[in-house]
Computed example of a mutant assay.
Amino acid sequence: MLPLILLLVTATYANNCSYIYDGFRYTRTSILTIKGLPSNLAYNPKTKDLFFTLIDLDTLLNDNVQTRMDQYVLRNGEPRKIDNVNGQAAAYDVKNDRVYIASDTGLNVLDGSDEASFFSLKDEDIVQLYKPAHNDNLYAVFYPDNEVYVIDVNKNEKKKLEYVPCAFVLAVDAEENVYYECDSKYVKMMLKDFQEPIEFVGIAKNAARAMTVDENNRVILAANDGLYWLRPDSLIPKKLMSLDFVPSGIVLNGDDLFLSTRGIIYQFNGAQCE
Score class of each variant (00 low, 15 high):
1 M>D: 12
1 M>E: 13
5 I>A: 13
5 I>W: 09
10 T>M: 13
15 N>K: 14
18 S>T: 10
20 I>S: 12
24 F>R: 14
29 T>V: 08
31 I>D: 04
31 I>E: 04
34 I>K: 12
42 A>F: 00
48 K>T: 11
50 L>I: 12
52 F>Y: 15
52 F>M: 08
53 T>H: 03
53 T>A: 14
54 L>E: 00
58 D>E: 14
60 L>E: 13
63 D>T: 12
66 Q>V: 10
73 V>N: 02
75 R>G: 00
76 N>Y: 13
77 G>E: 12
82 I>F: 07
83 D>V: 12
89 A>C: 03
96 N>P: 03
99 V>P: 00
100 Y>Q: 04
124 E>H: 09
125 D>A: 11
126 I>Y: 02
127 V>L: 04
139 Y>G: 04
139 Y>W: 12
148 V>G: 09
154 N>Y: 09
154 N>S: 10
165 P>V: 04
170 L>R: 05
176 E>R: 09
180 Y>S: 05
189 M>S: 09
190 M>Y: 03
191 L>F: 01
199 E>I: 06
203 I>D: 05
203 I>Q: 09
205 K>A: 13
210 A>K: 03
213 V>P: 02
213 V>S: 03
222 A>P: 04
223 A>I: 02
223 A>T: 01
225 D>M: 04
228 Y>A: 03
239 K>E: 11
239 K>Y: 05
241 M>F: 01
242 S>A: 11
242 S>V: 07
252 L>D: 03
260 S>M: 05
270 G>A: 07
271 A>R: 14
273 C>R: 09
